[in-house]
Design a binder for these strands. Structure first.
Lengths: 182, 182
DNA sequence: ACCTGAACACCGTTCAAGT
DNA sequence: ACCTGAACACCGTTCAAGT
């Protein structure tokens, strides 16, 4: 919604900052990345970051939104694939950000903004999955339960680096058992 | 294995430090607890802690071992309960330390000692669960898969504060589906 | 062997001052 | 409105010095 030159320049600078933050957070982790490092990569003074973000946690949420936005737009191409294929693809996508999964859970307890983002993110994924399951004839209750469990399993697989064949076996068993025992 | 007076006094002091660390880590979290705070509660100078532990991560591992030891000794009383009862009891026990679950995952990436502890902890729980499942006639392969999934679900339930009835429904469905589709 | 005071390099964040 | 230099309070950790 850039209205004038000043607005555009602000967005460009913000883009640079978030690109730097995203790269550093993904590569070396949130804790291991200092505000000074982000500032250096973005070509500004450290305290300048506080003009754009209230604090480090809000900068994290900004990078999360960028990543999710990019992920959702790529997900559009997978819309007609079967559910297990979608889930395994999702795991492959999230793999590179697996460090951020843990980071989010760590910050949820201390930062209200991250807590809110996290709740919304899970609700979104749950809804997505519930819709798919109900289309397969699973009851609303069972679909909700299965969506929650699948979310936990996805997070578990991401944060525990399971070998690919085992990962596939788990996803396929989960969906099969989920529909079968509905 | 205290052999003499000096050894005993060392153990007493270490006990005090670990009691203080455990309390603070559980109450206000690992990140939010400074070495200075632990030292103050234990009645020593901050740098004295480094005589007992190589760094903050090793102090964390020491507190984890204390908590697990206590937990296992209480688990002995539950040995003859059905598996779902045991799991729900375990969740109740871990509830108070749910913050530490996230902390461990966060430190796994950066500290080798925590990484090692985490791997051993999961192996122990997996073995415990696999033995139980095989006794129910589940194949070794299916038992392994189910143990992994259950571990993920337990961690998910702990770090996402699910309401009790939903929690029970999830645990019961998981075990039923796990044995049923074996 | 055990403990400490002082210091080190760093951290996230704030503030007053600039344009 | 946007950016900065300087400072603040704090952090985990180290080191030389004590007993």
């Amino acid at each position: 919604m850039a209205k004038n030159k000043r607005d555009i320049e602000r967005q460009v600078k913000q883009e640079e900052i978030e690109a730097a933050a995203t790269r550093l957070f993904v590569e070396r982790g949130y804790d291991a990345t200092s505000m000074a490092q982000v500032a250096e990569q973005a070509g500004v003074a450290p305290n300048t970051l506080y003009w754009y973000y209230k604090n480090k946690d809000e900068m994290l949420v900004a990078t999360l939104n960028r990543l999710v936005g990019k992920g959702l737009s790529e997900y559009a191409q997978m819309a007609d694939q079967p559910l297990d294929t979608q889930l395994l693809w999702l795991l492959g996508q999230f793999e590179q950000f697996s460090a951020l999964v843990t980071t989010v859970h760590a910050r949820v307890e201390h930062a209200a903004t991250v807590r809110e983002w996290h709740a919304n993110f899970h609700m979104m994924l749950d809804q997505l999955m519930i819709a798919r399951l109900q289309a397969q004839g699973v009851t609303a209750e069972q679909a909700g339960l299965l969506a929650t469990v699948t979310g936990f399993v996805v997070e578990g697989l991401l944060s525990h680096a399971t070998p690919q064949p085992q990962r596939e076996a788990i996803v396929q068993w989960l969906l099969r058992a989920g529909v079968q025992t509905a």
